[in-house]
Simulated assay, not measured.
Amino acid sequence: MRKNNARLVGVAVTALLGMTAWAGYKNSHTVSVTIGSNGSGGAASGSLASARNSSDTVQYIGCETHAYGGGSEIMCFARASNGTFGSCYSSNPVIVAIVQSIKGDSEIEIQWNSGSECTFVSVGNHSHLAPKNP
């Protein structure tokens, strides 16, 4: 009888430990903005959800798409919790398409040149990113 109880306890502990392993990796990616020296461009990255869920009321990151006469254009904006701000725009169809893949909890990385034109945009949708809280 004691052997059976010991086995049951062992199985229960193993099951509980196994459940913890299934919880998955979690990470937040607050907004970071870096401005190059002498206006040489910059970069920003962060998760939309991490920015929204942050305890400060300063940081944000995001992009928007605009359609006009014969094409479309995107604008991306980011502000870190220390107040550093950066933005860029692009009418490059490839960059516009990437920006259109942003979802509500995406992770975004942008880079821009001295003319504030987006030269790189990356959009990530990962299971380790937290969803936005209301």
Rank of each mutant, 00 (worst) to 15 (best):
residue 1 M to H: 10
residue 1 M to P: 07
residue 4 N to V: 13
residue 5 N to E: 11
residue 6 A to V: 10
residue 7 R to L: 14
residue 9 V to F: 11
residue 9 V to L: 13
residue 9 V to R: 14
residue 10 G to K: 13
residue 11 V to R: 14
residue 11 V to C: 12
residue 11 V to H: 13
residue 12 A to R: 08
residue 13 V to N: 08
residue 13 V to T: 09
residue 16 L to V: 11
residue 16 L to T: 08
residue 16 L to P: 04
residue 18 G to W: 07
residue 18 G to A: 10
residue 20 T to G: 15
residue 20 T to W: 11
residue 20 T to F: 13
residue 21 A to G: 11
residue 22 W to T: 15
residue 23 A to H: 12
residue 23 A to G: 15
residue 24 G to Y: 08
residue 24 G to R: 12
residue 27 N to F: 14
residue 28 S to Q: 14
residue 28 S to V: 15
residue 28 S to N: 13
residue 29 H to K: 11
residue 29 H to E: 11
residue 30 T to P: 15
residue 31 V to I: 01
residue 32 S to G: 07
residue 34 T to G: 07
residue 35 I to L: 05
residue 36 G to S: 04
residue 37 S to E: 06
residue 39 G to L: 01
residue 39 G to M: 01
residue 40 S to E: 06
residue 40 S to R: 09
residue 40 S to K: 11
residue 40 S to F: 05
residue 41 G to R: 03
residue 42 G to T: 02
residue 43 A to T: 07
residue 44 A to L: 02
residue 45 S to M: 11
residue 46 G to M: 05
residue 47 S to E: 07
residue 49 A to R: 06
residue 50 S to Y: 08
residue 56 D to N: 12
residue 56 D to A: 04
residue 56 D to K: 06
residue 57 T to K: 09
residue 58 V to G: 03
residue 61 I to P: 05
residue 61 I to L: 07
residue 62 G to E: 08
residue 65 T to I: 09
residue 67 A to S: 14
residue 68 Y to N: 09
residue 68 Y to T: 07
residue 68 Y to G: 11
residue 68 Y to F: 11
residue 68 Y to P: 06
residue 71 G to R: 02
residue 72 S to C: 05
residue 73 E to W: 08
residue 74 I to C: 03
residue 75 M to K: 14
residue 76 C to Y: 00
residue 77 F to P: 06
residue 78 A to D: 05
residue 79 R to S: 09
residue 80 A to C: 02
residue 83 G to H: 02
residue 83 G to W: 02
residue 84 T to C: 01
residue 86 G to Y: 02
residue 86 G to R: 06
residue 87 S to A: 13
residue 90 S to A: 14
residue 91 S to A: 12
residue 91 S to C: 08
residue 92 N to E: 10
residue 93 P to I: 12
residue 93 P to G: 13
residue 94 V to F: 12
residue 94 V to D: 14
residue 95 I to G: 09
residue 95 I to T: 13
residue 96 V to Q: 02
residue 97 A to C: 06
residue 98 I to S: 03
residue 99 V to Y: 04
residue 100 Q to F: 03
residue 100 Q to L: 04
residue 100 Q to T: 05
residue 101 S to P: 06
residue 101 S to R: 12
residue 101 S to V: 03
residue 102 I to D: 02
residue 103 K to T: 05
residue 103 K to P: 02
residue 103 K to Y: 01
residue 103 K to M: 03
residue 104 G to R: 04
residue 104 G to K: 04
residue 107 E to Q: 12
residue 108 I to G: 01
residue 109 E to Y: 09
residue 109 E to L: 08
residue 110 I to A: 02
residue 111 Q to F: 03
residue 112 W to L: 00
residue 113 N to R: 01
residue 114 S to L: 01
residue 116 S to W: 09
residue 117 E to K: 04
residue 118 C to A: 07
residue 122 S to N: 03
residue 122 S to D: 00
residue 124 G to I: 00
residue 126 H to W: 09
residue 127 S to H: 07
residue 127 S to Y: 05
residue 129 L to S: 02
residue 131 P to N: 09
residue 132 K to F: 03
residue 132 K to P: 03
residue 132 K to Y: 01
residue 132 K to L: 07
residue 133 N to K: 14
residue 133 N to D: 11
residue 134 P to V: 04
residue 134 P to M: 06
